[in-house]
Nucleic acid binder design. Structure first.
Length: 304
RNA sequence: CGCGAGGUAGAGCAGCUCGGAAGCUCGCCGGGCUCAUAACCCGGAGGUCACAGGUUCAAAUCCUGUCCUCGCAA
């Protein structure tokens, strides 16, 4: 069975690599265009391109899928597989050949672009992965199989994504075999239970200390890779990569920095938020003790 | 040529404006105090101040070039 793979970021990389490792016949990889990124706005090629090229698999970076329907018609493949491709596939493409999708949530919960972050933000203790038929609608196709995955308190976006991708790979392989053998069964989603999650904006990552300490920690966990939770301290912007709820209570006002000696602690609405790993503008990411060793506090209250 | 910050001991920083004996916090090693400790006290090791040129009696500090790291914006 010849597979045409669609996907761009890390989640897709893991799935694609897994397909290669299990000797699936991937005949092409479609991913997003090179984009100007970082300092100097140099063009950056998605990392998945390297993974594909290592295997000698052709890579297609189409700006608009619907303008390349003829190209797809000319390709020799049996099934399209998508894994966080990042764009909605047009009906004209979906009508060509069957297409299935790996979605990191227990559909119909968390349809949309940010299921992993949303589960963390909401403090969920369980999430999962679904393999489904790709349809024109947003993540609303029939489900082949799905499996729950536990979210541990210490999980963050990166660790959870890795877990979900691995489970997703297993489920995908299982489904591919069933499709090949003609015994795949799929069941419709219960649309009445569907929930949707939106793209993340940079401002969503601002830490508002009038929220609970746990929800602040959840924000840090959800955004640890991008855009990274942050707050303003005087003129500086501090990005927080890792944090926990400190087991203590004070009567300090919200946003007050409680300790800068051994611990970097800030008062939140209902408790104390402790920073474990952070970064100031222009500086490197460092653990709290290193940060506190050198940082010169000009103010002891977070700008709200 | 998008805007900006920075490279000084194992880590994080000050010193640079106004050139003139390398400092601070933490860690590490040794000793002391303590019922005890992430606490406290005393002592110690550890740095060609990113690299290369230049100016100077003298450069971490001034000038020129190179390499590297990072924040913002897209």
């Amino acid at each position: 069975m010849k597979i045409l793979f669609f996907g761009t970021p890390r989640f897709a990389e893991i799935i694609l690599q897994g397909l290669f490792d299990n000797n699936f016949d991937v005949v092409g990889v479609v991913c997003q265009n090179d984009k100007p990124a970082g300092r100097g706005n140099k063009m950056k090629t998605p990392h998945i391109v390297e993974i594909a090229r290592e295997k000698g698999v052709p890579v297609y970076q189409f700006e608009k899928i619907r303008e390349h329907i003829e190209d797809f018609k000319a390709m020799d493949y049996d099934l399209a597989v998508t894994a966080s491709y990042g764009k909605i596939l047009p009906k004209s493409f979906l009508d060509l050949k069957p297409c299935i999708n790996v979605h990191p949530s227990m559909l119909p919960k968390y349809r949309g672009a940010t299921p992993i972050q949303s589960a963390l933000l909401n403090g969920d203790t369980m999430t999962g992965v679904s393999i489904m038929k790709t349809e024109v609608g947003m993540d609303d196709g029939d489900i082949f199989v799905q499996k729950e995955v536990e979210i541990l308190p210490e999980d963050d976006y990166v660790s959870l994504l890795d877990k979900l991708a691995k489970v997703g790979l297993d489920l995908l392989i299982e489904t591919l075999h069933k499709i090949e053998n003609g015994n795949a069964i799929r069941t419709p989603q219960d649309d009445s239970k569907a929930t949707f999650v939106k793209l993340i904006q940079k401002e969503d990552a601002l830490l508002d200390f009038s929220m609970s300490a746990q929800s602040l920690v959840n924000k840090v966990r959800a955004f640890c890779e991008n855009p990274v939770a942050f707050f303003h301290l005087g003129e500086d912007r501090i990005k927080v990569y890792k944090a926990k709820v400190a087991n203590m209570s004070t009567d300090a006002p919200v946003g007050q920095i409680i300790s800068t000696k051994k611990h970097f602690q800030i008062q939140a609405a209902d408790g104390v938020f402790e920073i474990l790993k952070c970064q100031a503008s222009g500086g490197k990411v460092m653990d709290a003790s290193s940060f506190l060793n050198g940082y010169r506090f000009k103010t002891m209250a977070v700008s709200l």
